[in-house]
Design a protein around this nucleic acid. Structure first.
Length: 270
DNA sequence: ATGTGACCCTGGATGC
DNA sequence: TGCATCCAGGGTCACA
């Protein structure tokens, strides 16, 4: 489920509940997700105070003062708050108890990651080469134009390249290109400046509106087993192959780019 | 350097 | 009902 909006909704839900709380217990139930879990994590976290939660791309960073716990939710991960007595279910891989509330990581496909970062997070190999934050001022038409200069890759996989811009996953890449009226197959380096000047705000607007949609179910999300917001009901093209474009009625098409499904309206996106 | 495809893993949907 | 097949929101890696 998680693209950037889902990760941000998770952060917004957890931060006010957990910031300033002490770790009373940590339980790891699997040795590894994508990577081995940090050795001695329970001992390391014991008694530590959580200073805050930040996000870089789809990575969450839990600041414990002398280091950060990095969490990535992969394709199927979720973080929920639950009671101390709630029994862990299948795929509940990690619990961190904070003064009575338990932060629980569930990830059926185990594509997620949990790492301990002792140093400056931005210098960690997983984070050091990441591109612009899409919701920051740094992500502008001119910055995107510079990053795409001379690139022959199609624009859709280009905006999913985390070295260019982070957090634009498969759903929101298709949705943003629809919103901007750009053909997903267009060579990235040849998309005009005027079109990039539409695409950048389209990405920002798509992500922000998804965050707001997730935000509407925020309390449920954090307190029980998680509604995911209703953004999917607003999808213009994603998952709508052979259905009518909501704007012009043309049949939505699906194709594969870099082994990922791309959805687009051949009339609205040229 | 750049772009593409295989792959990590499990579960749900679909079809026979 | 059971079984096989395909597909999935991410990211890394090997290779052309």
């Amino acid at each position: 489920m998680p693209e950037l909006p889902e990760v941000e909704v998770t952060r917004l839900g957890l931060a006010p509940r957990l910031t300033g709380c002490h770790v009373s217990r940590t339980v790891a139930r699997v040795p590894a997700l994508r990577y081995p879990l940090p050795a001695g994590l329970p001992q390391r976290l014991q008694g530590k105070v959580l200073r805050g939660i930040t996000r870089r791309g789809k990575y969450l960073l839990f600041d414990f003062g002398d280091g950060h716990l990095l969490v990535h939710l992969g394709m199927s991960g979720s973080l929920r708050l639950t009671g101390e007595d709630r029994i862990a279910e299948k795929h509940d891989h990690l619990d961190i108890a904070f003064d009575g509330e338990v932060l629980r990581l569930r990830d059926p496909r185990r594509f997620g990651a949990v790492l301990w970062l002792a140093g400056e997070p931005a210098e960690h190999p997983l984070l050091a080469h990441l591109g612009a934050e899409p919701l920051s001022r740094d992500f502008s038409a001119s910055a995107l134009a510079a990053a795409l200069q001379g690139r022959r890759i199609a624009i859709k996989p280009a905006i999913m390249d985390s070295g260019i811009v982070v957090g634009v996953g498969n759903i929101y890449a298709s949705e943003s290109l629809f919103r901007a009226g750009i053909d997903p197959r267009a060579p990235a380096g040849q998309v005009s400046r005027a079109r990039l000047a539409r695409l950048v705000p389209a990405i920002k607007a798509t992500l922000r509106s998804a965050i707001r949609a997730g935000g509407s179910s925020l309390r449920d999300y954090v307190s029980c087993d998680g509604g995911l917001g209703d953004f999917q009901s607003r999808h213009q093209v994603y998952g709508r192959a052979n259905e009518a474009c909501r704007h012009c009625g043309t049949t939505i098409r699906m194709l594969r780019q870099s082994n990922r499904a791309t959805y687009y309206c051949p009339r609205c996106q040229r």
